[in-house]
Design a protein around this nucleic acid. Structure first.
Length: 497
RNA sequence: GGUCCUGUGGCCGAGUGGCUAGGCAGAGCUCUGCAAAAGCUCCUACAGCGGUUCGAAUCCGCUCGGGACCUCCA
């Protein structure tokens, strides 16, 4: 099998993935800021890195997946009056800051569960790691790369840039960052415009505040990820992920802080997912074009014709490569919904099928085609996690599976080995790696029993050409949202809308 | 303004210089008591203009369009 290659944002090319410690992978993904509800755009990184995590596990790696919860409010750094998103919202909603944070954390966890994402191995919170952040800031000050002004601490970018390539990750030219012509307010404390805060002095009305060597304040945004990643994954770790919009300044700053503190570049492979757009424009609060996950699941949004199952969203996201933008529309979601249903029904049929060997039926051409389609799944995933191509191959197998079910192609057209491989590999991919699951709720034994009874009665009626009875059963079930389908083999299948 | 990405059939989207990805929609056919599925077939596109090449959606240049980051942002 080919090696796993990943696109490293830092080198801007695909590289063969080699973990620091054989057999183990340390992966850090920037988690949500729990000051509000998650929207569709937020779903992309968590689903993308979920699949990456699942695939790494499939390859046999033991993965430590760390994803933080940002629950300590950031301040708007420049150009605006300092304010704390979380504490501001808390006042509006008359909630304790931690109460608010808990509410949105719970909601986030619920949504992640709906998406069938594997929970991270460690989910550290920023507020739970204030001590670690302070310690890290102290080290940076000791090393001479940060300075204190009026109870705030800033990272000295100019000094750092003199001996390190600040800006490489995000493709920034350091001189452009340093020599700005723009006059900005609220940054007179900084020695240079490009410096960023490690610790910020808290104004009296600021609710979230902690004691530090520099007075009462709160941590800068970037330091939490550096501190928590270092604590749980070490000074150097394999993968750091997040949205492309975090490249600058967040990840660039993380590199600088960690490099000074730990004397080595922190991350070996930087992986960034692209944005979800809506009418070609990034979905984001500042554009006023977000669709919250709860709105998506309920269909309660002007742009949505109906509610969409979380699995449809997951499938929709996996149909494109994670580094491409993905344009949202109701139409695109409808297409995904139909596609997923077709795929899932074929998948379930395949798992229910059993093999009957008959050598004279062997179709070498079909055998070769199926083997190739199956083998390519790993090739595609190894090529920078190409879920879109893997899904395309699975879709090419769907007509083969359906034909077998309809007996227009005998199951024994494939060799026993290939048929078994098809079953096992699809199970691994559809459920294990792509993390899809059924979008209908029929996992109820009593309901299944009742349905079987109705199917038996309908079969009897059809046998007697009593179409009044057979149609009554089918039509009334349809009114309840249960679709009954006669299959070519004489069997009947059903599903709930 | 600076840096970078991008422009694929009705829609969404893969695409490694040569072998029509795939999904959805549409059309026709087959199967079928009817229906719904399903199967088969068709729709063979790469913003425009040049260039490199035996050969370009894919490489280069220009033009036009769209977007991201440079401030919080997944």
């Amino acid at each position: 099998m080919s090696d796993l290659k990943v696109y490293n944002s830092y080198s801007r090319q695909k590289e063969v993935f080699t973990p620091l410690t054989p057999g183990h992978v340390g992966m850090y993904v920037c988690g949500p800021t729990v000051s509000g509800e998650s929207h569709l755009g937020h779903a992309r990184p968590y689903i993308t890195f979920d699949v990456i995590c699942r695939y790494l596990q499939h390859l046999g790696y033991k993965v430590r997946y760390v994803r933080n919860i940002t629950d300590a409010g950031h301040f708007e750094e420049e150009g605006r009056e300092a304010e704390d998103k979380i504490s501001k919202k808390a006042v509006l909603e008359k909630l304790e800051p931690m109460e608010l944070v808990q509410k949105y954390t719970n909601l986030f966890h619920w949504a992640m569960d709906q998406f069938n994402t594997v929970p991270p191995s460690i989910e550290p919170t920023a507020t739970g790691h204030i001590v670690e952040q302070i310690e890290m800031i102290k080290k940076i000050i000791e090393a001479g790369y940060a300075y204190e002004v009026n109870g705030s601490v800033y990272f000295d970018v100019k000094k750092y840039a003199a001996s390190h390539d600040y800006g490489k990750l995000s493709g920034r030219v350091i001189d452009d960052l340093l020599e700005t012509t723009r006059e900005l307010e609220g940054q007179e404390e900084k020695r240079d415009r490009s410096d960023f805060a490690l610790w910020k002095n808290a104004a009296p009305e600021h609710i979230m505040r902690w004691q530090s060597p520099w007075g009462v304040g709160f941590p800068g945004w970037h330091i939490e990820c550096s501190a928590m990643a270092t604590k749980y994954l070490g000074a150097q770790f394999d993968i750091h992920g997040g949205g492309m919009d975090l490249l600058f300044p967040h990840h660039e700053s993380e590199i600088a802080q960690s490099t000074i503190c730990n004397h080595s570049a922190p991350v070996r492979y930087w992986i960034h997912n692209n944005m979800i757009t809506i009418n070609g424009r990034k979905m984001g609060k500042s554009y006023n074009n977000v669709i919250k996950l709860t709105e998506l699941f309920s269909g309660n949004h002007p742009l949505l014709e109906k509610a969409y199952h979380p699995m449809v969203i997951r499938f929709f996201i996996l149909q494109t490569h994670y580094r491409s933008t993905l344009d949202f529309s109701n139409e695109a979601l409808l297409a995904s919904e139909k596609g997923l249903k077709r795929l899932w029904e074929a998948y379930e049929k395949l798992l229910a099928m059993s093999y009957e060997p008959r050598e004279e039926n062997l179709d070498k051409e079909l055998e070769a085609r199926c083997s190739k389609l199956i083998a390519e799944l790993d090739e595609f995933m190894n090529d920078d996690f190409s879920t879109a191509k893997a899904l395309a191959n699975i879709f090419e197998l769907v007509p083969v599976i359906n034909s077998m079910k309809d007996k227009t192609i005998p199951v024994s057209a494939l060799s026993a080995a290939t048929f078994e491989l098809l079953q096992n590999k699809l199970k691994t991919y559809v459920e294990g790696i792509l993390g899809l699951k059924s979008i209908t709720e029929a996992d109820n034994d009593k309901l299944k029993g009742v349905m079987q009874l109705l199917i038996d009665i309908r079969k009897e009626a059809k046998g007697k050409k009593d179409f009044v009875t057979s149609d009554k059963i089918r039509n009334q079930l349809a009114q309840l949202g249960i679709t009954l389908k006669d299959e070519k083999s004489g069997e009947m299948s059903w599903n709930i809308e």
